[in-house]
Design a protein around this nucleic acid. Structure first.
Length: 341
DNA sequence: CACATGTAGCTGCTTACATCA
DNA sequence: GATGATGTAAGCAGCTACATG
């Protein structure tokens, strides 16, 4: 007789994944949990997701006008449902909440310009670096830009024409040629205010419709393409962090189940030892082994032919209600032999 | 109605640059 | 100051959905 103890993680894969847990083979960072916290997200196990987005209120309030039909985008909460080990348990919901909301600068996006502490990369056009900045924007458009700017959107062209009319003045052809032949344009970082504003907007909706994108770009004095790229990268970062959280959760599940497997194997060995130490079990009264699912102790009860009252002959399991319920019966060896033959 | 084509938006991967220890 | 690690803006390929002829 062989008894197999198989453990599987596959019953309830994460709802957002249609792949098996192949990524578990991927090495995990050594200090996973702490690093997760360091990433700026906290993991909470909650029953129902509470609308945390309300915390990020005023920042993108100015954009609310533009998001009439985009409520469906808001379902993109940074949460994930994970199947639990037992099917009856409620799913574990990992909630990614930014630890520290980014303070919003009052003057962000004001085209008239409040006093800015640091250099706004897109305002650098007004400084001696202007050519670099203007060229950068021009470069994307002229370049054909490859993938992202393969096909220029009509509304983007509209926006850029508007920008050219108003803001960053066009360079002369000579200047353009000069810059085009120069080294690739420097990559300029968004200012903290711009990033903070985009972050607040991202809390409201992780995707943008063209109107929202235009509005954001206008407010932040950025190209719509820059806003679009920022949101794309931000979604990718969110997904990456969520994957790390999922991975950590499943790693712990795996540890727990491995430990459970070890314990059950040990218990099986003990039962086998019990069998060999009592070679005359055939003559013993029928024994029913019961295991309490809560305390995980095994109790053997013997039933004599003369009386229906079981007599406990081994370590008694606690008589809690849990112990009385769901008694998994392990057939005594004689019965197993009979069933096999 | 089925099909081809163009457009727009997305993801995933990658590169290059900026920043920091 | 040099250097490696890390973060991030942007480029690119490929996919899908949708509108249009």
């Amino acid at each position: 007789m062989t008894m197999e103890l198989g453990l599987s993680l596959g019953d309830h894969p994460p709802s957002n994944s249609n792949k098996p847990f192949g990524f578990l083979s991927k090495p995990l960072s050594s200090s996973s949990s702490s690093s997760l916290m360091a990433l700026g997200f906290c993991v909470g196990l909650i029953g129902h997701h509470s609308a945390s987005a309300s915390a990020s209120a005023s920042a993108s309030a100015s954009l609310q006008d533009d998001e009439e039909e985009d409520e469906d985008d808001d379902n993109d909460q940074k949460t994930v449902l994970l199947g639990s080990a037992s099917g009856s348990d409620p799913p574990v919901q990992l909630d990614l909440l930014p630890l520290a909301p980014v303070p919003l600068m009052a003057e962000v996006g004001s085209s008239e310009g409040g006093e800015r502490v640091e250099l706004d990369v897109n305002r650098a056009a007004e400084t001696e670096d202007s050519r670099v900045s203007c060229f950068q924007m021009e470069f994307g458009a002229r370049n054909g830009g490859g993938g992202g700017i393969k096909r220029k959107r009509s509304w983007e062209m509209e926006m850029e024409m508007e920008t050219e009319r108003g803001g960053c003045s066009r360079m002369s052809d000579d200047d353009q040629d000069h810059n085009a032949s120069a080294a690739a344009p420097k990559k300029l970082r968004l200012s903290k205010q711009q990033s903070a504003f985009l972050e607040e907007s991202f809390k409201e909706h992780t995707t943008l419709n063209p109107k929202q994108k235009l509005a954001l770009a206008k407010q932040l004095n950025l190209q719509p393409r820059q806003v679009e790229v920022w949101f794309q990268n931000r979604r990718a970062r969110t997904k990456l962090k969520q994957t790390e959280v999922d991975c950590e959760y499943l790693r712990r599940c795996c540890e727990t189940l491995t430990e459970e497997n070890r314990r059950l194997q040990k218990e099986l060995q003990e039962l086998r030892a019990l069998k060999t130490s009592q070679p005359f079990y055939m003559q013993l009264p029928a024994t029913t082994l019961t295991m309490c699912p809560s305390c995980e102790r095994v109790a053997a009860t013997t039933t004599t032919p003369t009386t229906s009252v079981p007599t406990k002959t081994a370590t008694p399991a606690p008589s809690s209600a849990l112990c009385l319920a769901n008694k998994p019966k392990i057939l005594p060896f004689p019965q197993l032999h009979q069933a096999a033959s």
